[in-house]
Computed example of a mutant assay.
Amino acid sequence: MPIPKTLMLLLGLILLSAVYAFGQVDTTAGGGEKKKLSFKDPEDGAIDLSQFLLEANGVLPVIIPITEPAVGYGGGAALLYFHKSKKKYKSYVPPSVSGIAGFVTENKTWGAGVFHRHIFGENRVRTMTAVFKPDVRIDYYGNDNPILEENPVGINLDSWVILQKAEVRLGESKFYAGASYTYFKTDVSFDTIPGQPIINEILKRLNSNSTISSIKPTFTYDSRDNAFTPFKGINAQVSLNYSAKWLGSSDDFTTLNTSFLGYLPVTSRLNSAWRFEGNYLLGEAPFYAYPFLSLRGIPALRYQSDNAMLGETEWTYNVYNRWSVLAFFGGGKAFPDFSDFGQVDWAYTVGTGFRYKVARLLGIHMGADFALGNGEEFAFYIVFGTSWLR
């Protein structure tokens, strides 16, 4: 389901992109005195946002760059409110955050909404609540249709999204259990094709309203050394997205999602990362909700079918102090049935990028990626933390 996934990506960018704010921020010390935050690390004198991320609270403006090739270049803005914790904990606990956000891209895709992310206790329970209005314009490649695969048609998804998510840590283990509920109502319309009256009449009849109402239980193992920019550990997740008419959905279908992210240091300067993902549809879903390949350099919905599997590896080398360069390669297939796997062509991506350790105390890196999908689709991405948002 591309739109809720886009919504989660946008909300993740908002929560991770507080570092884009400019100017100086004051916090109140214990005696009521104002303490000016420094954007330089006292250890090496480099630009560093650790103190800002750890101590800032209050209202914060945020700039959000968008470089997704499926919707074109664009940008957004948000106002975030950091809720000050009333309790002190032995370990760092991220603040609860409320905010409003909006974005627009060059192909007239836009969206706006509100959200609240709450942390309970010593980071043992995490919740996310969001209401969003996305109006997305994107090319549709036909879901295994040989004609549309070469001649995609534009579609417009004028939608409303309600999201509620909760996750709890199981005891003192590295296992987490959670669930989410998504309500997604959209008005689907197809663009017309010049000089094709018969096809346009067929497309006109496909215009319709569609509703997805789904619950998604999730089970996760997470041993990463850092949630933002990990260099060691594993994040493995299994989830089942269940949409049913008795929940208010237009269709009955289920999607099984599996994900594995592994981070393995090779030397003190060289680090490897590995990603494997699979999404499998059971039942008949709306055409926009079918699994698709999500790889850097490949537009969303470009490769879509009943099943989608991909693998990707990324290698990072620390060249000097806080600066690193990286290279990545990945590939995958979207296929209707496992018996057809060998007959479907591979989609692949290759690229490079760089990172700067922007917050030493939190181990957070920031930079950009440059990707080439299938040797023809170029895209670049601004990255805060990891490219594999989880």
Score class of each variant (00 low, 15 high):
residue 298 I to L: 15
residue 286 P to H: 14
residue 303 Y to D: 11
residue 295 L to C: 04
residue 297 G to V: 03
residue 296 R to F: 09
residue 278 G to C: 09
residue 289 A to Y: 07
residue 278 G to W: 05
residue 301 L to G: 00
residue 295 L to Y: 06
residue 304 Q to T: 14
residue 279 N to K: 13
residue 302 R to P: 03
residue 284 E to I: 12
residue 300 A to S: 15
residue 289 A to L: 06
residue 301 L to M: 15
residue 286 P to N: 15
residue 292 F to S: 12
residue 294 S to H: 04
residue 285 A to N: 07
residue 304 Q to G: 05
residue 290 Y to A: 02
residue 290 Y to G: 02
residue 303 Y to P: 00
residue 294 S to A: 12
residue 297 G to L: 02
residue 302 R to I: 07
residue 292 F to G: 06
residue 277 E to G: 10
residue 290 Y to E: 00
residue 295 L to P: 08
residue 297 G to P: 08
residue 294 S to M: 11
residue 296 R to Q: 14
residue 288 Y to Q: 15
residue 299 P to R: 06
residue 284 E to L: 11
residue 303 Y to S: 13
residue 300 A to N: 13
residue 300 A to E: 15
residue 277 E to A: 10
residue 281 L to Q: 12
residue 290 Y to D: 00
residue 296 R to K: 14
residue 298 I to C: 04
residue 291 P to R: 01
residue 306 D to N: 15
residue 279 N to H: 08
residue 300 A to D: 15
residue 290 Y to W: 06
residue 283 G to N: 10
residue 296 R to C: 04
residue 285 A to L: 10
residue 304 Q to D: 05
residue 298 I to K: 02
residue 285 A to E: 09
residue 290 Y to T: 00
residue 304 Q to E: 12
residue 297 G to S: 04
residue 289 A to G: 06
residue 300 A to P: 00
residue 287 F to V: 14
residue 297 G to C: 08
residue 298 I to G: 01
residue 305 S to H: 03
residue 295 L to N: 00
residue 283 G to S: 08
residue 287 F to Y: 14
